[in-house]
Design a binder for these strands. Structure first.
Lengths: 205, 205
DNA sequence: GGGAACACTGTCATTTTTATCAGGATATGA
DNA sequence: TCATATCCTGATAAAAATGACAGTGTTCCC
């Protein structure tokens, strides 16, 4: 089953309309766009596309169109990006967001229900964990396990550290020899565990 | 302007319907779901939500509803993930995709029109560029500039290397002392330039 | 106590949209 | 050559959906 040139034009139109307006075009709008004298032309094209599995139609519903693979795509979560997390975080107050990072749950490996946020990394204290200045790390609010990378609140600023647990105590360690090692974890507030990282060409690397 | 409990219920319904069906519910469907005796109740709720800026309505259009912030979110591009890229790539043949990486254009910094694909990194030949085994790197098909990280085809396998240009020649260099340095670039096919990186908790790090 | 937003009922006109029936013309593969 | 798919016209019925008008209470704030 191949898609004909005309059918591809229809698909492109559906896609661009949906991107721009947020809703699918009606058969009449398709008709007008292509200059069909009859609205039936649009209908039969949609039928053909449905038969080929490109679109799914919900019968009896206005604009009841959907790209079949759109639902197949993993759901996308919007992760808010915070530059720095204020001290009182967690107590209902929503810190200022510097933007949004939208990724599908599959490629990041976080569940959609998890409480996550992203942090813009400043400095190179975690360079040996291959986390660079300008990277965005995705933090999930949960209990850290040994050797997890965690976001911790130190002196009012959030920094990334390696969480290390020996037989007795818990420590936080920077992954850079230039930074002081081993900070007792008891005195600190651990805000979450790193579960992902996004590096972009605009992220300065 | 606060959202009332009832209005939040409406929002939740719109959202869940849109997720499930791909299209927005009509006023009648809202009416039926909440058990309103009158369809006007649904209409006035939508008006209230529009006034508060939650949704945008396209008047005179069936199911002409959209969450205002959905369009504010940067458009999302679907980047196909390839494990290994066959030799003849570029000649119309679409290599097998191992899945999809969906990211908004802003956080990655790639334009939606650019030809991009993602590659799962194997090995640690670029560890000093802080690219780890299991990472997904986003490759854009364009001409490399000096010191760009590029995807190159060597012996039928795609590998990442640093592109270095001195006064006379172009070389490819691994970012790991254990790997052989300096491969003449002329003999190789450079497939694209790294523009982004995604590391997930399922990506083994 | 008055005004305003909220959360509805009930009715009705109008527009928007789907859907189907009956064709015509032109390809393309068995 | 016959069947089948493509890509259309033209007309018409029916359904889906919006939109507007006139009300009824309630709550909350000034």
């Amino acid at each position: 089953m191949k898609i004909t040139a005309r059918q591809q034009e229809i698909i492109d139109f559906l896609q661009s309309e949906h991107r721009q307006t947020g809703i699918m075009p009606s058969t009449r709008e398709i008709q007008e766009h292509f200059g069909f004298a009859s609205q039936t032309a649009a209908v039969s094209h949609l039928k053909a596309l449905e038969k080929k599995g490109i679109i799914t139609r919900l019968e009896g519903k206005a604009r009841g169109l959907r790209f079949t693979d759109t639902l197949a795509r993993e759901p996308i979560i919007d992760i808010p990006i915070y530059g720095a997390i204020p001290a009182g975080y967690g107590d209902d107050t929503t810190p200022e967001s510097e933007g949004c990072l939208s990724v599908d749950v599959n490629s990041m490996g976080v569940s959609a229900s998890a409480k996550t946020y992203a942090l813009r990394v400043r400095g190179d204290s975690m360079i040996n964990a291959h986390i660079m200045d300008g990277d965005h790390v995705v933090i999930e609010q949960k209990e850290p396990r040994n050797h997890d990378v965690v976001a911790a609140l130190i002196d009012g600023e959030t920094t990334l550290k390696r969480y290390v647990k020996d037989s007795k105590k818990c420590f936080l360690r920077a992954e850079n020899p230039n930074y002081p090692d081993l900070i007792p974890a008891q005195e600190l507030m651990i805000q979450g565990v790193m579960v992902g990282l996004v590096r972009g060409s605009n992220g300065g690397w």
